[in-house]
Simulated assay, not measured.
Amino acid sequence: MQTIILNKLKQIAAANRIQLLYACESGSRGWGFPSPDSDYDVRFIYIRPLNHYLAVQESQYQLSFPINDELDIYGWDLRKVLQLMRKSNTTPFEWLQSPVIYDQRPGFREDLWALCPHFFSQRSNMHHYLGIAQGAMDTMQGDEIRIKKLFYVLRPLLAAKWCLERNSIAPMEMAPLMVLLPYSLRQQVQELIDFKATAAEGYMIRLAADLRSFIAQEFASISAASASLPRNEFETERLDAFFIKTLQEYNDNSRNETERLAAAGMCER
């Protein structure tokens, strides 16, 4: 599958005349609890030539493609990513932490990740994760829930708890978040992760009373705590500087490559 994904990314870059800066896995394979029928959630960040950003007409800053049985792939322009970071959107924070990287320009991930803590809003991140957890909780049927949806409750709930208690960007993966579980629940949750690795995502499970109680109590207490947190506003100077620097590097590299190819053509003649 790795080869298929890399070939698809190359085709996308060539067809859309973009430079890929970073491509990773997002979703259950990146979170650390895939099922046998989990698809591949490939996400990428790209940049275009300078003139694209100087046009009067506003452009679309994302690329999406039909989802097939195995591959769900889309990407965002760097400009969109930086705009979302200014709002402390959790998605760029998570992409940059992915343990599965398909492609990256040297140094890009590290440089952009270094900016992220400057745009962390405890309130915004907690509200995002609580919203995901609530949506998954709404699918419960009594004390039963699809195993996929259970982890759409647990991971964001623990991520919100991390943001509250540690006041920092939450890890993307489930494993480091599990330190926030009561010791009595860690083995139970690990067994559910192990079971999910062999079960279809739609498999229904019955939640144990102690796990149900933990989810309900934590959701209520974190929600109450988030309500009193301040709203954050962030300036754009760091993001503007990063965008300009990356854009200049892209255009310098493109110009050098064009000159190299032109010189090679002249030599052949």
Rank of each mutant, 00 (worst) to 15 (best):
F108Q: 14
F108W: 13
L112R: 15
A114S: 15
H118F: 10
F119N: 08
F119T: 10
F120N: 06
S121L: 08
Q122C: 15
R123Y: 09
M126R: 02
M126C: 11
M126W: 04
G131K: 01
G131M: 00
I132M: 04
I132W: 00
A133T: 03
A133L: 01
A133I: 02
Q141F: 08
G142I: 01
D143T: 08
I145H: 03
R146Y: 04
R146D: 15
K148L: 12
K149W: 04
K149R: 06
L150S: 04
L150D: 01
L150N: 02
F151E: 12
L154G: 06
L157Y: 00
L158C: 13
A159L: 05
A160L: 03
L164C: 14
E165A: 06
E165I: 03
S168W: 11
I169H: 10
M172I: 14
M174V: 11
A175M: 13
L181W: 03
S184F: 10
L185T: 07
R186Y: 07
Q188R: 05
Q190L: 13
E191S: 08
D194Y: 07
F195R: 06
K196T: 14
T198D: 10
T198A: 09
A199R: 09
A200Y: 05
E201G: 01
E201A: 11
G202V: 09
Y203R: 06
I205A: 01
I205M: 06
I205D: 01
R206D: 02
R206K: 08
L207W: 02
A208M: 05
A208K: 02
D210A: 05
D210N: 06
L211S: 00
L211V: 00
R212V: 02
S213D: 11
F214W: 03
I215V: 04
I215G: 01
A216G: 07
A216V: 12
Q217R: 04
F219Y: 03
S221C: 10
S221Q: 07
I222Q: 05
A227P: 15
S228Q: 15
L229F: 15
P230M: 13
P230F: 13
N232E: 15
E235W: 07
T236H: 09
T236S: 11
T236A: 12
R238M: 09
R238Y: 14
L239R: 05
D240Q: 10
F242N: 08
F242M: 10
F242Q: 03
I244H: 06
I244W: 05
K245D: 10
T246W: 08
L247P: 14
L247T: 07
L247R: 09
